[in-house]
Design a protein around this nucleic acid. Sequence first.
DNA 1: CGTGCCATTTTGTGATCACAAACTGATTTT
DNA 2: AAAATCAGTTTGTGATCACAAAATGGCACG
Lengths: 234, 234
Amino acid sequence: MVDAHSALKSGPAKAAAATPSSRGATREQVDSAVRSRLLTGRFIPGKSVTIRGLAADLGVSPMPVREVLQRLAAENALEVKPNGRVQVPDMTPGRFEEVLKARLLLETELAELALPHLRSADAADLKAIDDDIDARLTNGDAEAYMRLNHAFHFRIYRASGSQVLLPLIDSLWLQFAPFMRTVYGRVGTASLEDRHKEAIRAIERADAPALRAAIAADIADGMGLLGKEVLAEP
Amino acid sequence: MVDAHSALKSGPAKAAAATPSSRGATREQVDSAVRSRLLTGRFIPGKSVTIRGLAADLGVSPMPVREVLQRLAAENALEVKPNGRVQVPDMTPGRFEEVLKARLLLETELAELALPHLRSADAADLKAIDDDIDARLTNGDAEAYMRLNHAFHFRIYRASGSQVLLPLIDSLWLQFAPFMRTVYGRVGTASLEDRHKEAIRAIERADAPALRAAIAADIADGMGLLGKEVLAEP
DNA sequence: CGTGCCATTTTGTGATCACAAACTGATTTT
DNA sequence: AAAATCAGTTTGTGATCACAAAATGGCACG
């Protein structure tokens, strides 16, 4: 009994010594790790995520994992089933249509709000990301594509300095990303075409209507067409 | 040491025996309690909420409270400061404008989506809620007004069966409600006018453009005008 | 009288524990 | 042989603990 406590002092496994730094550091590490996995589709929809399993996977105690899972469930990125089990929600036609509608409403709006804050340096960054995307598409690296596509969009949105719309869009991406990963698994990435170059041109010209149109088209083509196709199949 | 455990068995305070029912029941109880307090403005913006304090207040252990606070922080209803302290975020002009814009975009859209699902029975319910609101306004009961106004709007939105837009709007209400409570505290509730009757009429006629207009006007007048006025003062 | 400093208390965080519900799979029963 | 049952394991939940960072309040010093 007593030595159990002293043993606890000597070595609480592996996570404690790594980064004894600031407040809530472990939780943030777990949070960004899980978010990254969701955004690149490394969690399979319908497969349940266990607290202990994920904790062991990340080398931390179950505690911060529990809190992170609750956070992501609150953003509708994960689903807590009535028995307490946590899993990535399955995509349904109704949910898909709603996500599409919300993305078109919010992302076009936020892109326009970001436009005045975007400098030519940002346009150069976006060009670099887009070139990287083109390279990855031919390689068929779906995870890298998803990570870069996310980086492209949020490089624009983040420039707005938004504190409200941006988190809402964040939630939407977490919801559709795991499903899109399964889509790319079926149709491949070679056939993907985006409107990123049109968006960059609109940013360089500070042309708000053109930027809205480019973002809307990027969403409708990249997500809408592919997704509806796959959802119609089974 | 040993009897500490048996004492734990005999009486872990007050919460355990009450509802030994289903999975995660305590967490849901805490969650809805805190949500209710936020939506009726019973938390003061800027005042920090302590885990142990809230736990003692609700008669539960700190555990479920921690998870709930994390959930609400993920919805931007609460803010975790760099020192780990949790508080209701202060409203800023920028945030306010964004919430207003997002509400206009999302709530008009969801109201229209809900319209085909709304039967005359729902219209009757809405009428009853609205009558209740009118009664409370003259009494100056701000908390009751906020609760009923929330009930009115979400009676409409929930009819849509939405799984995506509705949670987004939920997050928005949690963000502006505490601030609006302070607004009502300054200007009173007697001067409040809403467009609920116009909305009910539009629902009875199944007139989508009229419903959009009524919801938009209700948001712009009820929240926009008052809020901008108060934010301009200090 | 104001200001910096230190002891005390409060608070969040991560870890572990005990328990009940749920899942798994092998065995028995019809 | 198919279905039901039962033991064993896994898993989420709530509780408690130990520790460090932070806030608080009182005290000494300028």
